[in-house]
Design a protein around this nucleic acid. Structure first.
Lengths: 338, 338
DNA sequence: ACTCTTACTGGAAACGTTTCCACTCACCGG
DNA sequence: CCGGTGAGTGGAAACGTTTCCAGTAAGAGT
């Protein structure tokens, strides 16, 4: 069933059918109606590959998600897909393990699919010119931003919160309530991920409060995983219970930490306060409700697509967008009693 | 940068380059090496549209997810994508609102992308021959199965648990511990979704135990949403607190219910027991840990793709696969004290 | 009645592949 | 020395579109 069959069926040229298909202006009403009827009757479906072939550009946008098991990404991805759809693009989702190299995965995706742009979710915040060249198409780094480098010169775009500032803010929530034994629960401080920036904010907040950094309170885990976070906190509590506040860089980890505290017989927030960053829906329903700096997940996804479309259309150069969190006050933050 | 450029660059015919690209046997080692070098040097990327055009079949499998905000689907989708990738297919994900019509969405997807098969996640369990025809390509209904119709004659495949039996089992967990005021928290009992079957199992379990069905204990909500479940349970508790057991057809709803109970001053499981079906990771970390019948999420996704590939290759006709749940014993199930 | 527009339509090239067919050349056996 | 074989290669058709260009017919203006 091709355009030719349709053309033959209603005795017009293929070009006429094509015009009808693409809403071209100069085609008479009768012809248009006739063709439309034939299309419906024959249940004709245009072949997108052929269309893609002749039109210069593809119509797909790749999304590489590192650590998609984190429910934080779900609304972001949904927003991206919706926005892509609206703009006539197809979202091609590719999920990679938390430890994997998203640039390599992205390059592979570019190579095998017909992508016009790429969005990285949960990757690093830092990409070299060389990596950008290797990718060869515009890309947006979503959910984290390089705070250290010179953003003006980057060969890519980004949309994120100010991770340093938010890490600082979260830690400060604890500091202001008198906590001094404040642990941080994070991924890795050296992989150029969001953890590194939030950790820097944590360090700054401690420093400003005159609290020396105690590395035994830096709970590094892997992959934002709940089991890992649970184990790490449990292991610490088995040794010592002097911690009074925990700043988790992700809601999921915070929830796992609360469970670990609970299992160790500690109460939140009476014995230990917990704050996090993310604002996933689930953390509204934990007991106690999580206090967290909520990220605008939908907006992030939408903004990522918007930026990409702008760059693709040449409307604007690469840019870096910072969004605000909102403090979602839960029940896990209390005054330090010690 | 096309295959012609590569051919010109190393002074061979395009057909030769094509052969190298597709690992055809009869091409000499020297030529092969020469072409490969040129490809690398020129950074040539084959145009998939052109390839798709000439090869008879597309390489995409569509996945329509209804209510993707449910974290239950996350591992399923990941498994589907991994399996597609392995088989050389591209997964095209399309998320639709909980109330939407997945067949219409699927048809639209088939129309616009170049799909070979389709997987429905979280849709209905029942599809008519007419709908199958309209879709025009093989599809798998994943996560639920028609228990009422004659499966042998269906024009589609499915992979799921035995929703009726599991609904029965879950309810029985409560019955066996002496509960008689057992509520069910579900979506809609009449939309041919998973809720309907689990509800039937619930009714059966009650009937077997000689407990009359009390429709005021049937908590219908919409869209498996946590806020809706929370509101529904809260509203009931504001009227009456005589319920001693709740069977939630999804973990998410159970978690919301537990929160509602907690806010109403009731303890789980001392005052009210809660059981659910799903087994999402998060429910291992709730306080108390959720007792749930855990579905093999990865296996479901993998199986869905396997079936689809078999049907596509003609290896086997449409088939219906039933998987087993495993009881994940948490802390939300207790003996009825009344 | 003749040209000039205007409105529409048809024909054909082009997009970048794959694959079939035909061709060349070296080599082998007779 | 010659026909046959087979490996390697080139040429060209085909896939289903879009779009440019040319063409036709009708209607308007002279």
């Amino acid at each position: 069933m091709t355009i030719k069959d349709v053309a033959a069926y209603c005795d017009v040229a293929v070009s006429t059918v094509s015009r009808v298909l693409n809403n071209h202006p100069d085609v008479s009403e009768d012809t248009c109606a006739k063709v439309l009827a034939a299309i419906a009757k024959l249940n004709y479906i245009p072949n997108n590959s052929a269309r893609d072939l002749v039109t210069p550009q593809g119509d797909s946008i790749g999304v590489v998600v590192r650590g998609a098991e984190n429910p934080f990404f779900t609304p972001v991805i949904r927003a991206i897909e919706a926005r892509c759809e609206l703009a006539g693009y197809t979202m091609v989702l590719h999920q990679i393990p938390a430890g994997a190299d998203e640039v390599a995965a992205g390059a592979e995706l570019v190579r095998s699919k017909r992508l016009r742009g790429l969005i990285f979710l949960g990757g690093r915040f830092d990409y070299s010119q060389h990596e950008a060249n290797a990718l060869g198409i515009p890309f947006v780094c979503c959910t984290n931003t390089n705070q250290f480098g010179d953003l003006e010169k980057t060969a890519y775009s980004s949309v994120s919160i100010d991770d340093f500032a938010e890490g600082f803010k979260a830690t400060n929530l604890l500091v202001q309530r008198g906590h001094r034994r404040i642990a941080i629960l994070l991924d890795s401080v050296t992989d150029h991920s969001v953890s590194e920036l939030r950790y820097a904010g944590y360090c700054q907040a401690l420093a400003d409060a005159g609290i020396p950094l105690d590395t035994s309170l830096v709970f590094q885990t892997v992959a934002f995983s709940m089991p890992a976070a649970f184990e790490r906190v449990s292991a610490y509590l088995a040794q010592s219970q002097d911690v009074t506040g925990i700043f988790a860089v992700a809601d999921t980890m915070a929830i796992a930490a609360i469970k670990a505290l609970h299992n160790a017989g500690l109460h939140v927030p009476q014995d230990v306060s917990v704050v996090a960053i993310d604002g996933i829906e689930m953390s509204l329903y934990t007991i106690p409700t999580l206090t967290t700096l909520s990220q605008p997940q939908e907006t992030m996804g939408e903004e990522a697509v918007s930026i990409l479309l702008d760059v693709l259309s040449g409307t604007s150069p690469n840019r870096h967008v910072r969004l605000e969190t909102t403090l979602r006050e839960g029940e896990t933050l209390g005054v330090c009693k010690n």
